[in-house]
Computed example of a mutant assay.
Amino acid sequence: MLDSLKILVLNYTYEPLQFCCAKRGLLMVLSGRAEEIESDGYVIRSPSLSLPLPTVIRVLKVVKRNRRKQVAFSKKNILRRDNYTCQYCGEREHLLTVDHILPKSRGGKTSWTNVVVACKPCNLKKGNRTASEANMKLIKKPIRPEFSFHSFIIPEGPPSHIESWKKYLPKNVARGPAYN
């Protein structure tokens, strides 16, 4: 149970950092590295101890975050840019990969403007060809994003946890399965 429940971890300045499993969050509080900010009534019991399970904790030292001026090129950020959607067929359910529009073997570069998200079937269909050679069309032209992606998606959890998290999260955070 402690590995499936999530806790929101705040920086010393109350800025959201990440979600962690309840076990890790509880250990941070017990070791003195963090303090409990909110709890919703869940209790962890042992034969000799009962502890409220926090829903939100705050680390007791400032965690410096790297603020880049540009979004780093990575598979995760390509998936975020393309909204976890195949750029050839619009599918979101299949296993997703990244595809070079102009294949690397034909001189294509690994860059924001040459890499898109593709589902496995489309990637296999396209193969070592360009999209036009494979009679496939891109949904939208790939670009370098000008904005930063937030580093987390709100995980699933009990409604009481989600309510306590909302107070500390910016309004534009990606809403995960918990909101669907």
Score class of each variant (00 low, 15 high):
Gln70Val: 10
Phe147Asp: 05
Lys171Asp: 12
Asp82Gly: 00
Lys64Arg: 11
Ile37Leu: 00
Phe19Pro: 06
Leu8Asp: 01
Ser39Leu: 04
Glu93Phe: 03
Leu60Asn: 07
Ser46Arg: 02
Ser151Pro: 10
Lys166His: 07
Ile44Tyr: 15
Tyr168Asp: 10
Ile154Trp: 01
Pro103Asn: 09
Lys109Asp: 15
Leu27Phe: 04
Thr85Asp: 09
Ser74Cys: 00
Asn11Trp: 02
Ser39Gly: 14
Arg175Lys: 15
Lys75Pro: 01
His94Lys: 04
Asn77Pro: 07
Ile139Val: 13
Glu93Gly: 01
Ala118Thr: 04
Leu51Gln: 08
Ser50His: 01
Gly25Ile: 01
Ser160Leu: 14
Ala118His: 07
Asp40Asn: 14
Val98Leu: 09
Leu17Ser: 12
Asp3Tyr: 04
Val173Glu: 02
Leu2Cys: 02
Trp112Ala: 14
Gly127His: 11
Asn83Trp: 00
Pro177Ile: 09
Glu133Val: 12
Thr113Gly: 01
Lys137Ser: 15
Gly107Asn: 06
Lys69Ser: 13
Lys140Thr: 13
Glu91Asp: 15
Arg129Asn: 08
Tyr179Ser: 04
Gly127Tyr: 03
Thr113Trp: 10
Gln70Ile: 10
Asn128Met: 12
Trp165Ile: 10
Met136Phe: 05
Met1Val: 10
Ser160Glu: 10
Ile7Leu: 05
Arg80Gln: 07
Cys86Arg: 03
Asn114Lys: 11
Arg175Cys: 11
Ile154Met: 00
Arg33Ile: 09
His161Asn: 12
Ser39Cys: 01
Ala118Phe: 14
Ile101Val: 14
Ser111Ala: 15
Asn172Tyr: 15
Phe73Glu: 01
Ser151Asn: 14
Asp82Trp: 04
Lys109Trp: 07
Cys122Tyr: 03
Pro155Thr: 11
Glu133Leu: 14
Val56Leu: 09
Ser4Lys: 13
Tyr14Thr: 05
Ser132Arg: 06
Arg92Ser: 11
Val98Phe: 08
Val59Asn: 05
Arg80Cys: 01
Pro158Glu: 13
Arg58Trp: 03
Leu102Phe: 02
Gly107Thr: 07
Pro145His: 07
Leu10Phe: 09
Gln70Met: 03
Lys140Ala: 14
Pro145Trp: 04
Cys21Gln: 06
Glu156Asp: 06
Ser151Val: 07
Ile153Asn: 00
Cys119Asp: 01
Ile57Tyr: 05
Gln18Met: 08
Pro170Ile: 08
Asn114Pro: 06
His161Ala: 11
Gly90Cys: 10
Arg65His: 04
Leu10Val: 06
Val115Gln: 08
Glu133Gly: 09
Lys137Ala: 07
Ser48Asn: 08
Ile101Lys: 00
Val62Ser: 02
Phe73Pro: 01
Lys171Gly: 02
Lys141Ile: 14
Leu51Trp: 07
Leu51His: 03
Leu95Glu: 11
Lys23Met: 00
Asn172Ile: 02
Arg129Trp: 02
Val115Lys: 12
Gln18Arg: 11
Cys89Ile: 08
Ser111Phe: 06
Gly127Ser: 13
His100Ile: 08
Thr110Val: 02
Pro170His: 08
Val59Met: 09
Arg33Ser: 07
